[in-house]
Design a protein around this nucleic acid. Structure first.
Lengths: 215, 215
DNA sequence: ACCCCATGTGGACACCGACAACATGGACAG
DNA sequence: CTGTCCATGTTGTCGGTGTCCACATGGGGT
């Protein structure tokens, strides 16, 4: 499968835009993941259907089995994509911040990271839940990468800026992540499901306050 | 369906223990929920299969459709059971606490409630995830009932005991629940999945510390 | 120029959720 | 006591899905 992934880079990418030119698609794996991501966006992991994904990609069922061992394997690829997108949005949000001194900046960044985490979950519920529910056991939390990486970086920054005492640093990441992730999940499928937007935002700000205060 | 639920109480309950006596089961709805809960315990919502549940209950497929509109309807019933069990365990844990004054007691109760929440999730991962993923939109968070009810009661107690300023009370429940729920979810399917037990417990205590401090 | 193997195809099987038509027998009216 | 009615359970069926199998194709390396 590494060879397949590498081939994706070597083969010209316009195969799909020019129409399925021939027997061999040339870029099937990526195309299937695209389709599956779209399915996940539309309705979560349950909506990701192998046969339908193949159909929409213009290829016969079973073609997918040359690129994925399982349906679960495809789901795992979707999960990876979702994680990447979440990480990307968080990095973007955090990096486009420019206020006063390093202390205020670090604090603002922590809040911004948390806010963006929740906003992504609310904006892309299907992709978000799929990302966490269907991750492969192996590539879960390769420390420093993914959303977790963004969080640890911001927290380290907070220590460097002198806002967070170094002895309080261990474990802070888990608390922050848990609070924000829990809030997102409760908003998506829990009792905070149909809270009006304004109220939800207010609750989120309150949560961010308390978490920062408790660090 | 109310009539069916009421009949469960009127009909003698030993039908299942004496063996399926005849054409009419007499207690099918409850029996099917039992079986489905067992399936959910074993492997989460994905493991809950209508036909198999009917089979194991000693009844033909389709019999379930007299008691549940859908597979989703059955899952909702399982969710309800899971919530009840979670609430029960939390209440039990919280009530069997007896330390010093009202302030210490209330604080200890908050921690105990959170700890038990996570322990339930870890002990019954399938039931826990099913309970939250498959809840009916309607009976989600009937304020005062369910796990949420236990939490609000404990927080109110904290205010009465003078530990938590009244002006900080609003929103405290959301933060507490989010933190604990998020931690549970991250332990089940997230990056904290295969953390050794001791480390996990330590992280949980740290989280409880920070949450209490931030309230 | 040739062959080989990665990639895609068509067919088959078991299983599932859902619907429809039919069977059974307990409860209740007369 | 008897006859009927309807809630409950049964068999049959349909479309859809995941997965395995044997086979077809053709581009890249010898």
């Amino acid at each position: 499968m590494d060879s397949a992934a590498r081939k994706v880079d070597t083969v010209n990418m316009d195969v799909r835009t020019t129409g399925d030119r021939s027997y061999h698609h040339g870029n099937l794996r990526a195309a299937l993941i695209d389709t599956a991501v779209e399915q996940a966006r539309a309705g979560g992991a349950a909506e990701v259907v192998l046969r339908d994904a193949a159909r929409r990609t213009g290829v016969s069922h079973n073609a997918a089995y040359r690129h994925f061992a399982d349906r679960d394997d495809l789901l795992a690829a979707v999960s990876e994509r979702g994680m990447e997108e979440l990480e990307h949005r968080m990095r973007e949000r955090v990096s486009t911040l420019s206020v006063g001194g390093p202390a205020e900046l670090a604090s603002a960044r922590l809040r911004a990271a948390g806010r963006e985490y929740v906003h992504f979950a609310l904006a892309e519920p299907g992709l978000f839940t799929t990302a966490f529910t269907c991750a492969r056991p192996k590539d879960v939390a390769p420390v420093g990468h993914g959303p977790y990486g963004v969080l640890t970086a911001v927290l380290d920054e907070l220590v460097e800026a002198g806002v967070l005492p170094a002895e309080r640093r261990p474990g802070a990441d888990v608390t922050c992540w848990a609070a924000v992730h829990g809030f997102a999940v409760l908003c998506l499928e829990g009792p905070l499901r149909d809270l009006p937007d304004a109220e939800r935002d207010a609750q989120l700000e309150g949560l961010l306050d308390r978490v920062a205060r408790g660090l």
